[in-house]
Structure formats: C-alpha cells, structure tokens
Design a protein around this nucleic acid. Structure first.
Lengths: 229, 229
DNA sequence: ATAAATTTAGACACTCTTGTCTAATTCGTC
DNA sequence: GACGAATTAGACAAGAGTGTCTAAATTTAT
C-alpha cells in the first residue's frame, strides 16, 4: 500500500486549490465592491471557477462572506502575534529598534493584503454583522493590544522607558506610527515603503520624546549628555 | 409690489424642505447600507417623500450620492474651520486648553453625524469615485491640516511649545487625541463624551511630554522648577 | 378662487442577481 | 483505461431594484 495516509479527511489536491482561489477572489471582490455590490459571477470569474463550484463549497453568499472574515481575522492575528514576538526586549539602539518594529507591524500586518481587506470589511459591513465583528473585536484588538502593552511594560520595567499606563502607551505608539498614513488608509490606498518609514520614524521620535528616559538606563549615566540628541 | 424679491431663483418653501429631508435620509441610508445596498424606496420612505420626488430633485441614484458627499464635505469643512478658529493662541493653562480643543474637534467634527457619515462614505466608496474623493482630499485634509499646523507653529513661535515640524506635530496631535477611539470608529460607533475626554486627555498629556517646554516661556523662568509637574 | 407647479401612488418595462437544476466534461486515482 | 468525484456551462424561476410614465391630489402664489 501507498504512504498516502489520511485520505479520508484531506480532499483531493485540486479541491483545496479551488477553495483557496475562491477565498482569495471573494476577499478581493467583497472588499472592492462591498457585500451588496459584489456578485457571485464576479467572484467566480476572478477565481477562475464556475459559479456552481462556489455554491458547492460555501452554500450561499452570506456564508461565503462570513468565512472570508473569519479567515482574514485568523491570518491577521497570526501575523500580528508573529510580529509582536519580534518586539525589541533588549534594544541596542532603542529608537532604531522601535522604528524597525513599527515598520514591521505596518508592512506585515496593517498595509499588507490581509490587513487592508480585513480593515475595509470591518469598516464597511461591521454594523450589519454585529456578532461576527464582536468576535473579531475579542480575538483581534482584545488580544493584541494587551500583548503589545505587556511588551512596553517590560521595556519600562527594564528601565528603557518611563511609562505609567502601558495600555495607553501601546495605543499611542501605534497611533503615532500611523499618524501620517491615515488619509491613505481612508481611501483604501497602500502607502509606499518610504511613507511607512517616514511615519514610523516621526512617530517613534515623538513617542521617545514623551516616554524616553532622560538618562537612558542602568549603565548609561556616563554619556547622558549625548543622549538628548 | 411685494418685498419678496428674487422669486426666480428661490423655489417654494416646501420644495426646499423636501430637498433637505431627502439629503438627510439619503446620507443615513447610503451610510448604513453602502451605495450598492441602498435603494431609492428605502430613502424615500425614510425621507417621508415619494420615490418620484427624489428622481425629480436629483435625476438618478448616482447623482444623488455625489450630491450627498459634496454636501457633507462642505458642512464638515465649515465645522472644522469654525473649530480651528477656537484654537488656543494665548493659552492660560496649556494642557487644559489643548484638551478642550481636542474635545471640541472630536465632538463637533469627527464624532458628530456629518463627520461620521462622511468618514464612512469615503472609506466605503472612495475607490469607486476617484475624482470625487480627490476633490474631498484637496478641500478637506488638504486645507484643514495646514490650517491646524499653522496654529501649532504660532504657538511654538510664541514659546509655548518646542516643535520642529508643525505639519508632523499637527497630525500627531490629532492621532494622539483619537488614539483610544480607533476601534469604535472602525465599527461605525459613536464614542461617549467620557471616552472622548479620556482619549483627548491622555493624548494631550503625551503630546505635551513630547513637545512641551521644560521652562514654559518668556517670563516663566522664575517658576521653572514647578512647571515639570 | 384660480392657475401653475409640485408631489403622489401605482403600474410598468427592463435589468440584474441569486440560488437551483441538469447534463456533459474533466480530474484524480487505481 | 476505467471508475467515481468534482467541476463546468448553461438554462431557469423567482425576486428585487432602477428609472419612466400617467393621472390624480395637493400645495403655493396670485
């Protein structure tokens, strides 16, 4: 007998490929046209699949939509937690390390395809599917904000920052990092790498002016005079 | 002859009343349902008007939509400029005055009906009407950001703040003031007065930690030791 | 009161979309 | 090459929405 075990749960290869391309296309189209404006034929065409296949896989338009949002939420969360795990706990150059972190967060979680789509779907359809987006709120912001706040708290505890309320600081950190991208986000655009870097740089500088230690930390008293720049 | 001049341009009173209630209802419905999801009968019902009247006034659904966005852009801009004119040029208590300004900006321009509707329509339909929203971008952010930046520049010049780039500082000011309202905005909700105040307070405090003068200004050297608190 | 303008309800043709069904075809596997 | 499962194209009924038209009713100004 062949080594090909578990043929009972994993459907044929082609089946899964169709499933993925349907999800991709549906995300794209729902996002571009809104739920009401999207139609199944459009999605089918974009996925390179017949309309019937979509009904076979997902039942109806609404179930398809819900599946998309769940999928995006999950993938975005994974990305955010992966990025949080790169938070600079022992920074060599605090400013540079925080800028790099902010850029990673933006590029990999907020400006990328999934982030952009999820944001748009939440903004557009959030009010129509209260339970679905309540779920997103719990799974997304509800888990990611505290995780980021915890990292800032640790950084403060280690003497690198001067923070009273880590939750507030975490929200402000991301607000500052995105401050210059708001208009672009509004219109559904994707900022360039350069814009992301600019915004992160300005944001982190302001953040450190507010929360940075005057005399850096621990062994740093010797060059405190230089640290202000 | 009567004093009632210019009857040639001003249509009857009732006509104008219908027009207004159509605009109100259409804003409401387009916002709630998105362009594709909205239907004329819904708007007519909500406006207390027959479907035909809407066609008489606006021609078709798309023209109606464009009229709504133009109208909202205009009204929001007026509100923003009115609020900018209350910017504290000669603050007695810098922190309190900036918090009050941030709260006014939020309450009167961003969280109010018009602000909420315009934001949602831009997010939802921005990509479908590029010229319309390019227009918004020029008339809105394109004119309001520099106006706010100019006020911060003046405040810095008068010695109340320590700012290098007023444009960046202005964007960061508003980003900080809204930092804690983002999730609510995303889902189309309206934050409570208390949430607005909280966010503004935290935001302004951070802003002043970053950009506030250590020794306040001009005649203030004498009590510089107290100013840090 | 009367005349002009506006609004109204309802019917209407037309188009678009959803979701189902069927028969033919393709695909993956043995 | 042959079998079974999945996919496909196309037709289809049912429903919903747009924009037009008409004749009656209502409002507004003279």
């Amino acid at each position: 007998m062949k080594l090909n075990v578990s043929p009972d749960t994993i459907p044929p290869r082609g089946h899964e490929a169709k499933r993925v391309s349907i999800m991709d296309a549906a995300g794209e189209v729902f996002c571009r046209e809104s739920f009401a404006g999207a139609n199944i034929d459009m999605i089918a065409a974009e996925a390179g699949v017949s309309r019937q296949t979509i009904y076979n896989h997902h039942g109806d338009k609404e179930k398809l939509f819900v599946a998309i949002v769940r999928d995006l939420t999950e993938r975005c969360n994974a990305g955010i937690f992966a990025t949080i795990s790169t938070f600079p706990d022992q920074p060599k150059d605090l400013e540079a390390d925080l800028i790099a972190f902010a850029v990673r967060m933006n590029r990999n979680c907020i400006c990328n395809r999934d982030g952009k789509f999820l944001r748009k779907l939440i903004q557009t359809e959030g009010e129509r599917y209260p339970e679905l987006f309540a779920e997103w709120r719990e799974q997304g912001p509800g888990r990611t904000w505290p995780a980021i706040a915890a990292r800032f708290a640790r950084l403060a505890h280690a003497g690198f920052l001067d923070i009273e309320d880590p939750d507030v600081a975490a929200r402000q950190f991301l607000a500052l990092a995105n401050a210059e991208l708001q208009t672009t986000f509004m219109l559904g655009g994707t900022p360039t790498d350069d814009e992301v870097l600019q915004s992160a740089t300005h944001g982190v500088r302001t953040f450190l002016r507010a929360f940075g230690k005057r005399q850096p930390a621990a062994d740093a008293q010797k060059h405190s005079a230089l640290a202000g720049a």
